[in-house]
Design a protein around this nucleic acid. Structure first.
Lengths: 341, 341
DNA sequence: TTTCAACACTATTACGTTTTCGTAAACCAA
DNA sequence: TTGGTTTACGAAAACGTAATAGTGTTGAAA
């Protein structure tokens, strides 16, 4: 077992100073060719690599991005990570990932943990509980200390920082409009509880589409799912009670569950019931029938978020306080599949 | 914008030495109560937190685990990460994740990057290309330097280290046996190319189950998918040509594709064709019909892997070279759903 | 002979901690 | 007064690196 070799050890072995070794390895002209080559050969032989931690301490930057997301076993979030990781990697950054499990406390703990020097900046999406509480002090604190933060998807207006989002309202509007265009008149909305920012926006889009088309807005056609496990029953009841001819679901799970519930009571999708889901994931692609979705490119979101963060990190000329924060909107589009016709 | 405060700044401000500040904050008895309380109050006011990087450098440990996996937009892998992250977090560790994209080069690059002091140990699953090449020098090198490595799922016998796996052969055997028990006689295997270790093992289990039950082994009933996009056609042809009555697929995607192919040529699942998939993921649960799977608990695997790594890290009394590596086998079980009857 | 420059290398500092060792002052006992 | 112990603190080293600011030697120009 050979431990990692350091500049000091090489210096001692070759009987020169640490500075000479350091400069030789960086091909400094200050060092004579003979010494330089000797040091390089020795370093290569012992497979010398500079210690990242020492470099981080010295340079005051870690070349590491901290990611805080609610969960990772989730198609959209893992897609975003994928997007972040690739851009980060291309630029010589690593990513360190922490999960909030949709818990406020864990989000706070994780951020504090990383903020003490471990990373150069954050990319994050708010936990449900944080959105519910509306308490963002941990984030403003970090920003206050001069650490850049980029938020994506689940963001908050109360925090001033760079953001990457999709136009949830518009996307929802277009999805519902497409249902209306196909002659659907009684469109249900299956969504989450209100405090999740994106859920709210999608509801707004849904409502607006109905009103713009002169369709009646019926509160009863909106169901807010709290517990995923029981949602099939709730949806089933909705389908039976009201004469629904289309469902707009804010995620894949609700969509596929709607289809199953419909099948159970003898409704055919898409003939009797059209279904559109938000978020294009793996379920929609492989479900039977395949599901029409609003694509929400996680990869692109991750790419953009990483780019924004890195740009800010590299431009930071140490004192300039521009703070011209931007919010990027990633375009969405409808992927038509079998669940609508 | 208030920058992070350091011991040095506090010391200067209060006109004491750095050591006094440090000791005060750790409640050392060496320091008089008055000074101690004064320092603590000051530190609290300025929200002092020790710099992680400096601590890492001093302690020669980062409290960070490096994870190298082929991809992250993948139910199984993200589940494993979830399992790792939770155990890591409970023990005060962070996780830093790198993706190999199933590329040998990227796997090597990422490992080298992290091995230079950024992390205390690795948890990894081999990339396809690495398994194909059979070149594991980057891993042995890391181990050689005294950095613990725990491998999971896609492992190699050529590397001596702790491992967490499932008994792929046995699990496959039991899955196929269950098909046979239900009267299926002509069972096809839809698998990946051979060099992926788990694919090979699952094939072995399939073969053994057939032979043990006196069923004919027919090479033609095994199809090895290289390209996911064209697999529906290939599977469709298999179903039409041979009178298959069951499919054992090594992953969910192949299983759901088989079902779609079957439906297309008028076969009913499970009546005409039974289907079992390896890996219990989200597709199987929401497909129509739902798919019987071999559960391969990623969370449990991640938990165990993290536990093994942390145990080794914390036990390392700096010199003992036990090297009593263990391989843990996570139990699997069959989750019966609609695709078999 | 002096002066200056070029060369080849070294010492030192700084990043932020913790810890070991040291020491001055105060107190006490003999 | 001497010697010893306790109290309360500080100096310095160490972790590994890179950059700035030297230092000493040689050779050549003035």
């Amino acid at each position: 077992m050979k431990r990692k070799v350091t500049l000091k050890q090489i210096a001692k072995e070759l009987d020169v100073s640490i500075s000479t070794v350091s400069k030789s390895l960086r091909n400094s002209l200050e060092i004579g060719e003979e010494t330089r080559l000797k040091v390089q050969a020795f370093a290569k032989f012992y497979n010398y690599r500079p210690n990242n931690i020492a470099l981080s301490l010295k340079n005051r930057k870690t070349k590491t991005i901290g990611i805080i997301i609610p969960e990772i076993v989730h198609h959209f979030f893992s897609t975003v990570i994928n997007g972040i990781e690739h851009v980060a990697n291309e630029n010589g950054y690593s990513v360190i990932i922490c999960l909030s499990d949709d818990s406020f406390d864990k989000e706070v703990r994780n951020m504090e943990m990383l903020a003490n020097g471990s990373i150069d900046g954050f990319i994050m999406s708010l936990s449900k509980e944080t959105q519910f509480k509306g308490d963002y002090h941990h984030i403003s604190e970090v920003i206050d200390q001069g650490m850049p933060v980029v938020m994506f998807d689940r963001v908050s207006d109360e925090i001033l920082c760079d953001k990457v989002i999709i136009d949830d309202k518009l996307a929802a509007y277009e999805a519902v409009q497409s249902l209306i265009d196909k002659g659907r008149k009684k469109i249900a909305l299956v969504t989450t509880v209100d405090y999740v920012s994106v859920g709210k926006l999608r509801t707004d889009g849904y409502t607006k589409a109905l009103l713009d088309n002169g369709l009646p807005f019926n509160e009863k056609l909106i169901i807010k799912i709290e517990d995923v496990d029981t949602c099939e029953i709730i949806i089933g009841k909705l389908l039976e009670d009201k004469a629904i001819d289309a469902v707009f679901a804010v995620n894949e799970l609700f969509a596929v569950t709607s289809i199953k519930a419909a099948n159970k009571i003898g409704l055919n999708v898409p003939k009797d019931l059209a279904v559109i889901a938000f978020t294009d994931g793996i379920i929609s692609k492989y479900s039977t029938p395949t599901i029409t979705t609003v694509s929400q490119s996680g990869v692109k979101m991750g790419n953009r978020a990483a780019k924004m963060l890195i740009d800010r990190l590299e431009s930071e000329t140490e004192q300039e306080e521009d703070e011209n924060y931007t919010t990027e909107v990633i375009e969405t589009h409808l992927i038509e599949r079998e669940s609508t016709n």
